[in-house]
Nucleic acid binder design. Structure first.
Length: 677
DNA sequence: CTTAGGG
DNA sequence: CCCTAAG
């Protein structure tokens, strides 16, 4: 069965393109400051102008009247200068494109300029702590700095995986006068650029740069100060608590996103749930460069994919050999089914809502609560989510849920990786004239706001990232092959299953995850689903579709170092295991493996040992407490019997005459004697 | 590489 | 399932 499901997720932020180092001529109005970093690893230079830009734009447009003649930033410390020319700026100057589009460019630069130091080609990779300087785009353009700490690769799932979080606990703000004010930046997230705009090759080459995501957000009046850039020019009195606030961050969805409103300093939430993954990666990386370099992983993987030797057999489970998936993910036209979408409610009112008014200051006209209040020219939006184009994926029935997740993620990342713009839709129609003000566009009236939505669209249909894989010369030196996640689809079922005919005879097992599959007959998307294609098949991209997925499925997959997909033992497997243990006893898992699971590559002797462990446990607890596919009591009984027998045997060391083996079907072949078999 | 156990 | 300390 093919699973076709529209993937709808939320992207609550705008992507800020990475700006390559080097001459920056095209960029305007931005600045880069070199991070004064101590030799070691990382200093981050965070260039932020977008925030202000967003604010400005929205504000200016919102208040068409509010003529703020000058939106030009005033840079403090002379580091930044308003620049409109295309000249190359001093090294320390980063310019940011001042587009009118929502997409703003923030630039983050890792201390690439540890000039005196050796070049830090991999500096980025090892940034665990850094210094970040941000210039907010308020009228004063004051510099905000903070020592930040990046969380290491967070392998949870979804986007967060690619996010390095920079935390600026109780940040402070350095005013021009040198005073430090606290609480303007609460947190910043810097995503690794692995899948962002730049091509993989770029990723390798621009490792010292980070992407910064900025998302406008509604600020809770109470936490406002701490969680966002504060625009001084708009004192709370004149500027509603929210509206102009900008939140930096990247979230995958509401669930996972940590609301900035909350003061999350070292947010445990962001602690890599799966530190192991990271650890694993690190362990496998002989090259120090790979250390904590999520960004480079894909390169690394790519390499391995290109033919680098793989590790041991067992390890290869994670390798590409098994993942010759032909996964294909295509994106559908963004809107082709928007209207049809219902339950997911990606669009429409839910996407945009008026900002809560509570918490407003007393002096503030609380009445302004409604965006529509004439008194308040500001349009307050709370963008709960940004919709992305529909994704269609196809996976074989035997795919595991885990593989499905990865597949979806890959699809998503593929989209994001190619760069996206934000489209604005009003009542379902795309608002194309970007020069118009919100008022002119009718985005200022509440009624319309309910129908305002945003969507991601391709930055460039042409933009097709270069695959690192294809570039042998890339900096991604081959390092010790990292364990690659097994290909979900691929590896999961079929192949192995078919092979383990002796064990996996239970069809039920093969269908690990498709119960929830949704198949829509009407979809023409899936035209060819051959049993062999354990890949995702996507729908033909439409004209407006995003650039074709950058292929590097494999590479990307590589990025996902994660644990093997879970594969519950089937009854038949359990039976085989029990039988083998009855004969061989516990403690000889390798033999058990050889005897009963020889062809089940995905079952290692450790797995068998673990399974036995759980079986014993399962047999011990009450049936009500058992979970998963029920194991016949008969088998459990045998488990207990064998367990008791062999435990005893083991204890006795030599008890040949024990009640042992013989009682079970083990014949005279006593425990000591390894069954030759 | 295997085991044995804890996580 | 993962990870590791121990043979």
């Amino acid at each position: 069965m093919v699973l076709k499901k529209r993937v709808d997720y939320r992207f609550n932020g705008f992507r800020i393109p990475v700006i390559p180092k080097g001459p920056r001529s095209a960029r305007r109005r931005g600045h880069l400051k070199k991070a004064a970093e101590d030799g070691q690893a990382c200093a981050f230079e965070l260039l932020a102008s977008l925030a202000g830009q967003l604010l400005q734009e929205s504000e200016s447009s919102a208040c068409s009247n509010a003529s703020e003649g000058n939106h030009q930033p005033v840079f403090s410390q002379g580091v930044i200068e308003q620049d409109r020319q295309d000249e190359v700026k001093p090294l320390k100057t980063e310019e940011i494109h001042q587009g009118s589009s929502i997409e703003s460019t923030f630039k983050t630069e890792v201390a690439s300029q540890n000039s005196t130091q050796k070049p830090l080609p991999h500096a980025r990779a090892d940034c665990s702590v850094g210094h970040i300087s941000v210039y907010d785009n308020s009228d004063t353009w004051e510099k905000v700095e903070a020592n930040v700490k990046t969380e290491t690769f967070d392998w949870d799932n979804k986007f967060r995986n690619y996010t390095n979080r920079l935390e600026a606990p109780e940040n402070f703000r350095e005013s021009r006068d040198g005073k430090i004010k606290k609480g303007f930046i609460h947190e910043l997230e810097v995503g690794s650029s692995c899948f962002q705009g730049s091509a993989l090759a770029d990723k390798c080459g621009l490792k010292d740069q980070l992407d910064l995501y900025v998302s406008p957000t509604l600020i809770d009046s109470k936490s406002n100060v701490k969680s966002t850039f504060h625009r001084k020019s708009f004192p709370s009195s004149s500027f509603p608590k929210h509206g102009s606030s900008i939140k930096l961050g990247f979230r995958d969805d509401d669930e996972n996103f940590l609301r900035c409103e909350k003061v999350c300093t070292k947010s445990k939430a962001y602690r890599s749930p799966r530190r192991i993954a990271h650890r694993r990666i690190r362990n496998r990386m002989s090259s120090k460069y790979w250390k904590v370099a999520p960004k480079l992983k894909d390169c690394e993987l790519s390499r391995s994919d290109l033919g680098a030797p793989h590790y041991h057999k067992r390890k290869t489970y994670y390798g590409f050999e098994r993942s010759q998936h032909n996964s294909i993910v295509k994106r559908r036209k963004f809107f082709d089914r928007v209207s049809g979408v219902t339950s997911d409610g990606g669009f429409s009112s839910e996407s945009v809502s008026n900002s809560p008014q509570k918490g407003m200051d007393g002096d503030k006209p609380s009445s302004s609560a409604k965006l529509h209040i004439p008194k308040d020219p500001h349009v307050k939006l709370s963008i709960k989510s940004v919709r992305i184009p529909e994704l269609y994926v196809e996976v074989p029935e035997t795919a595991t849920v885990g593989s499905l997740k990865r597949t979806v993620m890959e699809a998503v990342m593929a989209i994001l990786g190619s760069g996206v713009h934000v489209g604005v839709l009003l009542q379902g129609k795309k608002v194309r004239d970007e020069s118009r003000t919100l008022v002119q566009s009718g985005i200022s009236c509440k009624e319309n706001l309910d129908n305002l939505s945003f969507m991601l669209e391709p930055v460039s249909l042409q933009a097709s990232p270069t695959l690192c894989v294809a570039d042998p010369s890339s900096q991604c030196e081959t390092s010790e092959p990292t364990r690659v996640p097994e290909t979900p689809v691929l590896d999961s079922g079929m192949t192995d299953t078919l092979r383990d005919t002796s064990l996996l005879t239970n069809p039920g097992n093969l269908i690990e995850s498709n119960h929830e599959s949704i198949s829509s007959p009407t979809d023409t998307i899936v035209d060819k689903v051959t049993p062999d294609s354990r890949a995702l098949v996507a729908v033909p991209a439409s004209a407006e579709a995003l650039a074709v997925v950058p292929v590097s499925q494999k590479s990307k997959r590589a990025e996902f170092v994660q644990r093997r997909t879970r594969r519950p033992f089937s009854v038949s497997e359990v039976e085989a295991l029990v039988h083998a243990v009855e004969e061989l006893g516990t403690g000889r898992w390798r033999d058990v493996k050889l005897r009963a699971f020889e062809n089940a590559d995905h079952r290692t002797y450790v797995d068998l040992k673990d399974k036995w462990k759980t079986l014993v446990h399962t047999a011990t607890i009450s049936p009500q407490q058992r979970r998963g596919e029920p194991v016949p009591q008969e088998l459990l009984d045998r488990v207990l019997a064998a367990h008791a027998l062999w435990s005893q045997h083991q204890t006795k060391q030599h008890g040949k005459h024990q009640a042992g083996p013989g009682a079970l079907k083990i014949s005279e072949t006593s425990a000591e004697r390894p069954c030759v078999c």
